[in-house]
Design a binder for these strands. Sequence first.
DNA 1: ACGCGCTCGTGAACGCATTCACAAAGTCGA
DNA 2: TCGACTTTGTGAATGCGTTCACGAGCGCGT
Lengths: 241, 241
Amino acid sequence: MSEQRAAQVDGAVGAVGAGTPATDPAPRRRGIPDASVARLPLYLRSLHGLAEGGRTTVSSEALAAAAGVNSAKVRKDLSHLGSYGTRGVGYEVDELVHHISNALGLTQHWSVVLVGVGNLGHALAGYGGFASRGFQIAGLLDADRGRVGEQIAGLMVRHMDDLDEVVRGNGVSIGVIATPARAAQEVCDRLVGAGVTSILNFAPTVLQVPPGVDLRKVDLSMELQILSFHEHRKSAKGVPA
Amino acid sequence: MSEQRAAQVDGAVGAVGAGTPATDPAPRRRGIPDASVARLPLYLRSLHGLAEGGRTTVSSEALAAAAGVNSAKVRKDLSHLGSYGTRGVGYEVDELVHHISNALGLTQHWSVVLVGVGNLGHALAGYGGFASRGFQIAGLLDADRGRVGEQIAGLMVRHMDDLDEVVRGNGVSIGVIATPARAAQEVCDRLVGAGVTSILNFAPTVLQVPPGVDLRKVDLSMELQILSFHEHRKSAKGVPA
DNA sequence: ACGCGCTCGTGAACGCATTCACAAAGTCGA
DNA sequence: TCGACTTTGTGAATGCGTTCACGAGCGCGT
Ligand SMILES: NC(=O)c1ccc[n+]([C@@H]2O[C@H](COP(=O)([O-])OP(=O)(O)OC[C@H]3O[C@@H](n4cnc5c(N)ncnc54)[C@H](O)[C@@H]3O)[C@@H](O)[C@H]2O)c1
Ligand SMILES: NC(=O)c1ccc[n+]([C@@H]2O[C@H](COP(=O)([O-])OP(=O)(O)OC[C@H]3O[C@@H](n4cnc5c(N)ncnc54)[C@H](O)[C@@H]3O)[C@@H](O)[C@H]2O)c1
């Protein structure tokens, strides 16, 4: 299940400092396990839902139910952020939202550049879920001059040649790749060259990035094939060999 | 060398036995481990690339490099399918493609129904990666009658009321949800009711499915927030308190 | 004030996944 | 035919993540 779990961390980045200062007044923000980090956004979403429902406090059991996980997991995950629960009561929703947002770095806004404004790129560009979570699209880029100049969701598509300008001019640190697979590695290299240090890749191909750059991928075909496997197994089960 | 990483973790949300958490002693899976299954599509994609490049055999080392993983992992994963390698040589590309396809159930075509033909749904409907992997879209459905009748990629958008007909008439077993989050659970329930047993959810919400139904999710916002975490950590590192 | 009941936080057990390391098994050239 | 070389397949070691189980701490009612 977790699988997807979030895989392993990049060697260079993952090595959380030998002798980390850790003299923070607040929580121990030292090395939260990847698996926990991957669930924090889920808790955050669940908490927002609970807050809208009027809840001011929530127990690990209730939050676990909302997030669809085990309550012990919730408690252990949250314990990595510090001790913000009250025994006998639970967690204060607002406070928890604040601490999770803080841990995820969502207290600041992030600028994102989207490369490849085709079929998928259009959908992503128009997606409200970006802005509502603090991710601002600083630029839409495409190599096809026929697309340059097009307006999407209040933004104009610019040419790849403007990449450096867009990235440096807006302090962009996150890049999203929505180009065909064959162009993805080149685009990736250019993003890294321009200063992007986190990349989300939608193209179905394996990308190489230098140490220090984080890479995640979303691959629809792989998801379908995994479902296919389970379907296959299910149907085989009903039919005795 | 093999420092590739990046992973979608996500999770494979529940699978079998997700209903009531209380009673599940766990007579679980025998067979290929989930983590291995999740990589098979990756190997398949890499093998297709190698085949196009003219390779007829490939060693675990070479395949590992192409897929961005460790070679021992490749060998262990493939060993779950049987012993199809030749010591001293490697694996025959075509044969491996065949065996992996077989294990994943890709030797048959799967019919998919897509619910929610909005921003994202349009992109998915027009995505060639579906058909090329053996996933045929049997129907595009939407609750908005204003969208019904629209033609996308050779398919006409139909109303949700036709769900049962589409599913039963085409032997659909996989459903894709691309509706707003608030509608997702209802859509999910209707899909399950119509006979769908595998669901891929793009809506940012936790879905409940009965035992026997597989559920996977793709959540863009969560991916961005995970990247945000790492960015945050990186920048904090450079600025000692 | 004080005990009762509830829930957090966490040590420990467990299980799965990854990686190592190497014998077995095959190829290939001479 | 044979021996050197290559690569698989897999036991064993290691590490990570999940889950259990329970003591510690806190609020509340009396
Ligand atoms: N459409 C989907 O629903 C979907 C789903 C999952 C994955 N994907 C993947 O996402 C990617 C994009 O899919 P799509 O359907 O939008 O394809 P598309 O062909 O519609 O769009 C690709 C865009 O990338 C641009 N592009 C090409 N080379 C470029 C370069 N070197 N630099 C900058 N821009 C470049 C093209 O001009 C085009 O606008 C593909 O890799 C596809 O496999 C798409
Ligand atoms: N657009 C993106 O790039 C993107 C990215 C990631 C996730 N998502 C998620 O995917 C989902 C769809 O996003 P979108 O941008 O396409 O939204 P959208 O509003 O453009 O499209 C939603 C579609 O679902 C239809 N719909 C609503 N209720 C329905 C119901 N009960 N039954 C059937 N159809 C129904 C609507 O008529 C509409 O056509 C959302 O949950 C969104 O959060 C979107």
